[in-house]
Nucleic acid binder design. Structure first.
Length: 269
DNA sequence: ATGTCGTGCAAAGCACGA
C-alpha cells in the first residue's frame, strides 16, 4: 500500500501532471494541498475514471485540500473542529478521512509570512488546533488505530531541513515558536507520540542528499539546490510500524510546469 | 535581493500569495 502527500499549487494548472503521476506511481491514497479549486472546478470525474474516490474542501483562489483514495474513503471531516478563523473566515486548510482503516489528515498550514506578523500568530493558532485534534482523535479511535497527519506544514523541523540555516536566521519556517508548536503536536499525547518520518531524497535507495520537498520558484531555487523539508508525515506507532520506506519524488519537481513542491511517498507493508 | 508562478478581477495589466 502506498500513501502520498503533495502540495499541487493549483489542481487546474497541474491536472495533466497529477494524472500522469497517479498512473506512474500508483498511490492508493493521495493527500493534496493548495488545490486552488472550488467544489465545481474540482476534477472529481477525471479522478473517478482512474479509480479514485475523492473528497475536496475548497472555495476559491487560495488554499484548498483534498484526499484521493482507491482503497475506501470514509468518515470525511472538513476542517478542524477547533480551527481558528482569519479575518472572520475559516480557511480551507484541513480535511480528514479514513482510508483502509487508516485515519489521515491532509493539512495546509498557513505560511506565516514573517515572524511576528498577524499571519504568524494565525499559523501558531492553527498548529494548536491540529494538536487539539490529535487529542480528540486519540480519544475517539483508541490506541491501536493507525493515524497520520500529512501535508504542507510550512515548518522545517531541524536546522538541516533547510539549504542554509544561516540564510534563515530570524525568518519564518525555522523559528523556535513554530518548532515548539510542531513538537507539541507530536507530543499531544505523550503516551502515543507522533514520529516525523524522515524520507530519502528520492526513489533511489542510495540517495544521500537532504530530503527536501520544496524549492522556491523564484531565483531558480531547485536548480541551485535551495530546498526545504516542510512537507511532513507525522504518524503514530501503529502506522509507523507498517512503513517500509519513505521517499521524496523529486523527479516530479523537474521539467516544464512543475509545482514548487515534490510529493512525499510512504510505502507500507 | 526577490529574477517565478498561479489566480481572479475586470480587462491583456495588475494585486496578491507563496
Amino acid at each position: 500500500m502506498r500513501i502520498a502527500t503533495w502540495n499541487l499549487n493549483s489542481v487546474k494548472a497541474r491536472l495533466p501532471r497529477l494524472l500522469s503521476w497517479l498512473e506512474l506511481r500508483q498511490p492508493d491514497v493521495l493527500l493534496v494541498q493548495e488545490t486552488k479549486a472550488t467544489a465545481e472546478s474540482w476534477p472529481a470525474a477525471e479522478l473517478q475514471a482512474r479509480g479514485y474516490e475523492s473528497a475536496h474542501l475548497g472555495n476559491g483562489r487560495w488554499n484548498g485540500v483534498a484526499i484521493l483514495s482507491r482503497v475506501g474513503l470514509a468518515d470525511v471531516t472538513r476542517g478542524l473542529p477547533a480551527q481558528p478563523a482569519f479575518d472572520d473566515a475559516v480557511e480551507d486548510r484541513a480535511i480528514g478521512a479514513t482510508c483502509a482503516g487508516i485515519r489521515l489528515w491532509s493539512l495546509y498550514v498557513p505560511n506565516g509570512r514573517t515572524v511576528g506578523h498577524q499571519h504568524f500568530e494565525y499559523k501558531l493558532r492553527f498548529l494548536d488546533a491540529v494538536r487539539a485534534q490529535c487529542v480528540a482523535e486519540r480519544a475517539a479511535l483508541g490506541t491501536g488505530a493507525p493515524f497520520g497527519l500529512l501535508g504542507d506544514f510550512n515548518v522545517a523541523p531541524n536546522d538541516d531541513d533547510v539549504w542554509d540555516i544561516v540564510a534563515f536566521d530570524g525568518s519564518t519556517h525555522v523559528s523556535p515558536p513554530e518548532r515548539a508548536a510542531l513538537a507539541a503536536i507530536q507530543q499531544a499525547d505523550p503516551k502515543a507520540p507522533l514520529v516525523d518520518l524522515r524520507p530519502r531524497a528520492s526513489i533511489d535507495p542510495d540517495d544521500t542528499r537532504p530530503p527536501y520537498t520544496f524549492w522556491e520558484m523564484r531565483m531558480l531555487g531547485f536548480q541551485k539546490g535551495r530546498g526545504m523539508r516542510i512537507d511532513l508525515a507525522l504518524v503514530n506507532d501503529p502506522l509507523a510500524q507498517r512503513v517500509q520506506s519513505a521517499w521524496v519524488d523529486r523527479d516530479a519537481r523537474r521539467g516544464e510546469g512543475p509545482s514548487d513542491h515534490a510529493p512525499l511517498v510512504l510505502d507500507l507493508d
